[in-house]
Design a protein around this nucleic acid. Sequence first.
DNA 1: TAAAATTAAATTGTATACAATTTAATTTTA
DNA 2: TAAAATTAAATTGTATACAATTTAATTTTA
Lengths: 144, 144
Amino acid sequence: MDFLKLEDQACFPVYALSRVLTAHYKPILEGIDLTYPQYLVMLVLWEHQQLSVKEIGEKLLLDSGTLTPLLKKLESKKLINRNRSNEDERVVMINLTAGGTALREKAKAVPESFKCSLGLSIEEMVALRDSIKIILERTKQINK
Amino acid sequence: MDFLKLEDQACFPVYALSRVLTAHYKPILEGIDLTYPQYLVMLVLWEHQQLSVKEIGEKLLLDSGTLTPLLKKLESKKLINRNRSNEDERVVMINLTAGGTALREKAKAVPESFKCSLGLSIEEMVALRDSIKIILERTKQINK
DNA sequence: TAAAATTAAATTGTATACAATTTAATTTTA
DNA sequence: TAAAATTAAATTGTATACAATTTAATTTTA
Protein backbone atom coordinates (compact mmCIF):
# COMPACT_ATOMS: atom_id res chain seq x y z
CA MET A 1 0.00 0.00 0.00
CA ASP A 2 1.24 3.49 -0.85
CA PHE A 3 0.62 5.59 2.21
CA LEU A 4 1.28 8.77 0.28
CA LYS A 5 -1.99 8.35 -1.59
CA LEU A 6 -4.95 10.39 -0.41
CA GLU A 7 -7.10 7.31 -0.87
CA ASP A 8 -5.12 5.47 1.79
CA GLN A 9 -4.92 8.25 4.36
CA ALA A 10 -6.66 7.66 7.66
CA CYS A 11 -6.68 11.27 8.77
CA PHE A 12 -8.18 12.84 5.65
CA PRO A 13 -11.61 11.16 5.92
CA VAL A 14 -11.85 12.28 9.54
CA TYR A 15 -10.84 15.84 8.62
CA ALA A 16 -13.26 15.92 5.68
CA LEU A 17 -16.11 14.32 7.62
CA SER A 18 -15.68 16.83 10.41
CA ARG A 19 -16.18 19.66 7.94
CA VAL A 20 -19.08 17.94 6.19
CA LEU A 21 -20.86 17.41 9.51
CA THR A 22 -20.22 20.99 10.59
CA ALA A 23 -21.64 22.17 7.26
CA HIS A 24 -24.79 20.15 8.00
CA TYR A 25 -25.11 21.85 11.37
CA LYS A 26 -24.68 25.33 9.94
CA PRO A 27 -28.18 26.04 8.54
CA ILE A 28 -29.75 24.42 11.58
CA LEU A 29 -27.71 26.40 14.06
CA GLU A 30 -28.33 29.64 12.18
CA GLY A 31 -31.87 29.34 13.49
CA ILE A 32 -30.55 29.89 17.00
CA ASP A 33 -27.70 32.20 15.90
CA LEU A 34 -24.85 29.91 16.95
CA THR A 35 -21.80 28.55 15.15
CA TYR A 36 -20.90 24.92 15.75
CA PRO A 37 -18.11 25.63 18.29
CA GLN A 38 -20.42 28.08 20.06
CA TYR A 39 -23.09 25.37 20.15
CA LEU A 40 -20.60 22.97 21.76
CA VAL A 41 -19.85 25.51 24.49
CA MET A 42 -23.57 25.98 25.09
CA LEU A 43 -24.03 22.20 25.25
CA VAL A 44 -21.49 21.79 28.04
CA LEU A 45 -22.93 24.78 29.90
CA TRP A 46 -26.47 23.41 29.64
CA GLU A 47 -25.08 20.28 31.25
CA HIS A 48 -23.01 21.94 33.95
CA GLN A 49 -24.43 25.47 34.47
CA GLN A 50 -21.08 26.84 35.56
CA LEU A 51 -17.61 26.01 34.29
CA SER A 52 -14.23 27.72 34.18
CA VAL A 53 -12.62 28.50 30.83
CA LYS A 54 -10.15 25.73 31.57
CA GLU A 55 -12.89 23.17 32.27
CA ILE A 56 -14.65 24.05 29.03
CA GLY A 57 -11.32 23.68 27.26
CA GLU A 58 -10.77 20.25 28.78
CA LYS A 59 -14.18 19.05 27.67
CA LEU A 60 -13.91 20.42 24.12
CA LEU A 61 -10.13 20.07 23.70
CA LEU A 62 -9.80 23.79 23.02
CA ASP A 63 -7.35 26.28 24.54
CA SER A 64 -7.89 29.81 25.81
CA GLY A 65 -6.62 31.22 22.53
CA THR A 66 -9.70 29.76 20.86
CA LEU A 67 -12.11 30.04 23.77
CA THR A 68 -11.51 33.59 24.97
CA PRO A 69 -12.76 35.30 21.79
CA LEU A 70 -15.54 32.72 21.37
CA LEU A 71 -16.74 33.25 24.94
CA LYS A 72 -16.62 37.01 24.49
CA LYS A 73 -18.90 36.53 21.50
CA LEU A 74 -21.36 34.45 23.53
CA GLU A 75 -21.19 37.14 26.21
CA SER A 76 -21.99 39.83 23.65
CA LYS A 77 -25.01 37.73 22.62
CA LYS A 78 -26.08 37.81 26.29
CA LEU A 79 -26.05 34.02 26.55
CA ILE A 80 -23.31 33.79 29.19
CA ASN A 81 -21.55 35.83 31.87
CA ARG A 82 -17.79 35.87 32.42
CA ASN A 83 -16.54 36.56 35.93
CA ARG A 84 -13.22 36.20 37.69
CA SER A 85 -13.47 33.71 40.52
CA ASN A 86 -13.19 35.18 44.01
CA GLU A 87 -11.33 32.19 45.41
CA ASP A 88 -8.77 32.23 42.59
CA GLU A 89 -8.46 35.40 40.59
CA ARG A 90 -6.71 33.55 37.76
CA VAL A 91 -9.87 31.62 36.98
CA VAL A 92 -12.70 33.00 34.84
CA MET A 93 -16.03 31.33 35.56
CA ILE A 94 -18.62 31.07 32.80
CA ASN A 95 -22.32 31.11 33.74
CA LEU A 96 -25.46 30.90 31.67
CA THR A 97 -27.68 33.97 31.64
CA ALA A 98 -31.46 33.55 31.70
CA GLY A 99 -31.35 33.90 27.92
CA GLY A 100 -28.65 31.27 27.65
CA THR A 101 -30.67 28.86 29.77
CA ALA A 102 -33.80 29.60 27.78
CA LEU A 103 -32.03 28.91 24.49
CA ARG A 104 -31.87 25.25 25.45
CA GLU A 105 -35.58 24.88 24.70
CA LYS A 106 -35.07 26.08 21.14
CA ALA A 107 -31.96 23.92 20.80
CA LYS A 108 -33.90 20.78 21.64
CA ALA A 109 -34.95 20.50 17.99
CA VAL A 110 -31.36 20.64 16.74
CA PRO A 111 -30.35 16.97 17.08
CA GLU A 112 -33.44 15.75 15.24
CA SER A 113 -32.98 18.32 12.45
CA PHE A 114 -29.35 17.30 12.18
CA LYS A 115 -30.26 13.63 11.94
CA CYS A 116 -32.71 14.40 9.11
CA SER A 117 -30.20 16.60 7.30
CA LEU A 118 -27.61 13.86 7.43
CA GLY A 119 -29.92 11.06 6.34
CA LEU A 120 -28.25 8.50 8.56
CA SER A 121 -30.28 6.27 10.84
CA ILE A 122 -29.93 6.57 14.60
CA GLU A 123 -28.19 3.20 14.56
CA GLU A 124 -25.61 4.35 12.03
CA MET A 125 -24.94 7.55 13.94
CA VAL A 126 -24.55 5.70 17.22
CA ALA A 127 -22.20 3.20 15.57
CA LEU A 128 -20.14 6.01 14.07
CA ARG A 129 -20.08 7.89 17.35
CA ASP A 130 -19.01 4.89 19.41
CA SER A 131 -16.26 3.74 17.04
CA ILE A 132 -14.83 7.25 16.80
CA LYS A 133 -15.04 7.81 20.53
CA ILE A 134 -12.92 4.73 21.17
CA ILE A 135 -10.22 6.01 18.82
CA LEU A 136 -10.49 9.51 20.26
CA GLU A 137 -10.00 8.26 23.81
CA ARG A 138 -7.01 6.19 22.72
CA THR A 139 -5.34 9.06 20.88
CA LYS A 140 -6.08 11.59 23.63
CA GLN A 141 -4.33 9.34 26.13
CA ILE A 142 -1.28 8.98 23.93
CA ASN A 143 -1.04 12.71 23.50
CA LYS A 144 -0.48 13.30 27.21
CA MET B 1 -31.17 9.55 25.45
CA ASP B 2 -30.60 13.29 25.78
CA PHE B 3 -29.16 14.43 22.48
CA LEU B 4 -28.20 17.77 23.98
CA LYS B 5 -25.44 16.11 25.99
CA LEU B 6 -21.91 16.35 24.64
CA GLU B 7 -21.44 12.71 25.57
CA ASP B 8 -24.13 11.69 23.11
CA GLN B 9 -23.09 13.89 20.21
CA ALA B 10 -21.93 12.13 17.06
CA CYS B 11 -20.27 15.13 15.50
CA PHE B 12 -18.10 16.19 18.43
CA PRO B 13 -15.87 13.09 18.50
CA VAL B 14 -15.25 13.50 14.77
CA TYR B 15 -14.46 17.19 15.20
CA ALA B 16 -12.19 16.50 18.16
CA LEU B 17 -10.47 13.52 16.55
CA SER B 18 -9.77 15.56 13.45
CA ARG B 19 -7.93 18.13 15.55
CA VAL B 20 -6.11 15.48 17.60
CA LEU B 21 -4.89 13.76 14.43
CA THR B 22 -3.82 17.06 12.87
CA ALA B 23 -1.91 17.84 16.07
CA HIS B 24 -0.10 14.53 15.71
CA TYR B 25 0.88 15.43 12.16
CA LYS B 26 2.18 18.85 13.12
CA PRO B 27 5.65 18.02 14.52
CA ILE B 28 6.18 15.45 11.77
CA LEU B 29 5.22 17.83 8.99
CA GLU B 30 7.34 20.61 10.45
CA GLY B 31 10.30 18.52 9.31
CA ILE B 32 9.26 19.18 5.70
CA ASP B 33 7.87 22.66 6.42
CA LEU B 34 4.23 21.87 5.58
CA THR B 35 0.97 22.33 7.43
CA TYR B 36 -1.55 19.51 7.28
CA PRO B 37 -3.75 21.10 4.59
CA GLN B 38 -0.62 21.93 2.59
CA TYR B 39 0.47 18.30 2.94
CA LEU B 40 -2.90 17.18 1.58
CA VAL B 41 -2.47 19.39 -1.48
CA MET B 42 1.02 17.99 -2.03
CA LEU B 43 -0.36 14.43 -1.69
CA VAL B 44 -2.89 14.92 -4.47
CA LEU B 45 -0.27 16.62 -6.65
CA TRP B 46 2.23 13.79 -6.11
CA GLU B 47 -0.52 11.50 -7.35
CA HIS B 48 -1.65 13.59 -10.30
CA GLN B 49 1.25 15.93 -11.20
CA GLN B 50 -1.12 18.56 -12.58
CA LEU B 51 -4.54 19.62 -11.34
CA SER B 52 -6.71 22.72 -11.56
CA VAL B 53 -7.67 24.58 -8.39
CA LYS B 54 -11.17 23.23 -8.86
CA GLU B 55 -9.96 19.62 -9.13
CA ILE B 56 -7.90 19.97 -5.96
CA GLY B 57 -10.95 21.44 -4.28
CA GLU B 58 -13.09 18.50 -5.36
CA LYS B 59 -10.62 15.98 -3.99
CA LEU B 60 -10.09 17.77 -0.66
CA LEU B 61 -13.57 19.30 -0.32
CA LEU B 62 -12.12 22.80 -0.12
CA ASP B 63 -13.15 25.93 -2.03
CA SER B 64 -11.07 28.59 -3.73
CA GLY B 65 -11.41 30.84 -0.69
CA THR B 66 -9.32 28.34 1.24
CA LEU B 67 -7.16 27.07 -1.60
CA THR B 68 -6.08 30.31 -3.26
CA PRO B 69 -4.06 31.62 -0.29
CA LEU B 70 -2.81 28.11 0.55
CA LEU B 71 -1.60 27.56 -3.03
CA LYS B 72 0.06 30.96 -3.05
CA LYS B 73 1.95 29.87 0.03
CA LEU B 74 3.08 26.63 -1.62
CA GLU B 75 4.11 28.71 -4.63
CA SER B 76 6.17 31.02 -2.42
CA LYS B 77 7.88 27.89 -1.04
CA LYS B 78 8.72 27.00 -4.66
CA LEU B 79 6.92 23.67 -4.43
CA ILE B 80 4.30 24.41 -7.10
CA ASN B 81 3.60 26.67 -10.08
CA ARG B 82 0.30 28.41 -10.73
CA ASN B 83 -0.60 29.15 -14.35
CA ARG B 84 -3.76 30.17 -16.13
CA SER B 85 -4.79 27.51 -18.63
CA ASN B 86 -4.46 28.49 -22.29
CA GLU B 87 -7.55 26.57 -23.34
CA ASP B 88 -9.71 28.17 -20.66
CA GLU B 89 -8.44 31.33 -19.07
CA ARG B 90 -10.75 30.91 -16.09
CA VAL B 91 -8.83 27.83 -14.96
CA VAL B 92 -5.61 27.97 -12.93
CA MET B 93 -3.48 24.88 -13.32
CA ILE B 94 -1.22 23.78 -10.48
CA ASN B 95 2.02 21.94 -11.30
CA LEU B 96 4.77 20.56 -9.12
CA THR B 97 8.16 22.20 -9.40
CA ALA B 98 11.30 20.05 -9.30
CA GLY B 99 11.50 20.89 -5.61
CA GLY B 100 7.89 19.90 -5.09
CA THR B 101 8.47 16.57 -6.81
CA ALA B 102 11.66 16.01 -4.83
CA LEU B 103 9.86 16.65 -1.53
CA ARG B 104 7.98 13.41 -2.03
CA GLU B 105 11.11 11.44 -1.11
CA LYS B 106 11.34 13.18 2.26
CA ALA B 107 7.60 12.79 2.76
CA LYS B 108 7.80 9.02 2.40
CA ALA B 109 8.73 8.78 6.07
CA VAL B 110 5.66 10.75 7.19
CA PRO B 111 3.03 7.96 7.30
CA GLU B 112 5.26 5.67 9.37
CA SER B 113 6.14 8.51 11.79
CA PHE B 114 2.47 9.35 12.07
CA LYS B 115 1.54 5.74 12.82
CA CYS B 116 4.16 5.63 15.59
CA SER B 117 3.04 8.95 17.03
CA LEU B 118 -0.52 7.76 17.18
CA GLY B 119 0.23 4.37 18.67
CA LEU B 120 -2.52 2.64 16.75
CA SER B 121 -1.86 -0.55 14.84
CA ILE B 122 -2.15 -0.61 11.06
CA GLU B 123 -5.26 -2.75 11.47
CA GLU B 124 -6.92 -0.20 13.76
CA MET B 125 -6.07 2.66 11.43
CA VAL B 126 -7.39 0.79 8.40
CA ALA B 127 -10.59 -0.08 10.27
CA LEU B 128 -11.04 3.55 11.34
CA ARG B 129 -10.31 4.80 7.85
CA ASP B 130 -12.74 2.42 6.16
CA SER B 131 -15.63 3.00 8.57
CA ILE B 132 -15.23 6.77 8.30
CA LYS B 133 -14.90 6.67 4.54
CA ILE B 134 -18.24 4.90 4.24
CA ILE B 135 -19.94 7.58 6.31
CA LEU B 136 -18.11 10.34 4.45
CA GLU B 137 -19.25 9.02 1.07
CA ARG B 138 -22.83 8.75 2.32
CA THR B 139 -22.89 12.27 3.73
CA LYS B 140 -21.13 13.78 0.71
CA GLN B 141 -23.84 12.33 -1.53
CA ILE B 142 -26.60 13.75 0.62
CA ASN B 143 -25.04 17.17 0.57
CA LYS B 144 -25.38 17.51 -3.21
C1' DT C 1 -24.93 35.86 -32.63
C1' DA C 2 -25.75 39.03 -28.91
C1' DA C 3 -27.60 38.90 -24.27
C1' DA C 4 -28.13 35.91 -20.32
C1' DA C 5 -26.47 32.38 -17.62
C1' DT C 6 -22.83 29.79 -15.92
C1' DT C 7 -18.29 28.83 -14.41
C1' DA C 8 -13.49 29.23 -12.11
C1' DA C 9 -10.63 31.94 -9.19
C1' DA C 10 -9.90 35.56 -6.45
C1' DT C 11 -11.32 38.69 -2.92
C1' DT C 12 -13.58 40.25 1.32
C1' DG C 13 -15.12 39.51 5.77
C1' DT C 14 -16.03 36.61 9.76
C1' DA C 15 -14.91 32.77 12.76
C1' DT C 16 -12.27 29.43 14.38
C1' DA C 17 -7.61 26.82 15.83
C1' DC C 18 -3.38 26.86 17.96
C1' DA C 19 1.65 27.95 19.09
C1' DA C 20 4.12 31.19 21.66
C1' DT C 21 4.24 34.85 24.74
C1' DT C 22 2.54 37.87 28.37
C1' DT C 23 0.24 39.04 32.60
C1' DA C 24 -1.42 38.33 37.00
C1' DA C 25 -2.33 35.17 40.65
C1' DT C 26 -1.22 31.19 43.32
C1' DT C 27 1.59 27.41 44.90
C1' DT C 28 5.90 25.28 45.79
C1' DT C 29 10.35 25.16 47.54
C1' DA C 30 14.89 26.39 49.22
C1' DT D 1 8.68 33.37 53.99
C1' DA D 2 10.74 35.30 49.91
C1' DA D 3 12.15 33.71 45.36
C1' DA D 4 11.10 30.35 41.86
C1' DA D 5 7.89 27.68 39.60
C1' DT D 6 3.41 26.88 38.12
C1' DT D 7 -1.10 27.99 36.58
C1' DA D 8 -5.22 30.30 34.11
C1' DA D 9 -6.55 33.64 30.77
C1' DA D 10 -5.59 36.80 27.56
C1' DT D 11 -2.96 38.41 23.72
C1' DT D 12 -0.36 38.17 19.38
C1' DG D 13 0.51 36.21 15.13
C1' DT D 14 -0.18 32.75 11.57
C1' DA D 15 -3.07 29.53 9.05
C1' DT D 16 -7.00 27.68 7.79
C1' DA D 17 -12.39 27.39 6.54
C1' DC D 18 -16.16 29.14 4.27
C1' DA D 19 -20.15 32.30 2.86
C1' DA D 20 -20.90 35.98 -0.18
C1' DT D 21 -19.39 38.85 -3.70
C1' DT D 22 -16.58 40.23 -7.63
C1' DT D 23 -14.13 39.63 -11.91
C1' DA D 24 -13.14 37.65 -16.13
C1' DA D 25 -13.96 33.98 -19.31
C1' DT D 26 -16.90 30.68 -21.46
C1' DT D 27 -21.20 28.51 -22.64
C1' DT D 28 -26.05 28.55 -23.40
C1' DT D 29 -30.09 30.31 -25.25
C1' DA D 30 -33.56 33.29 -27.22
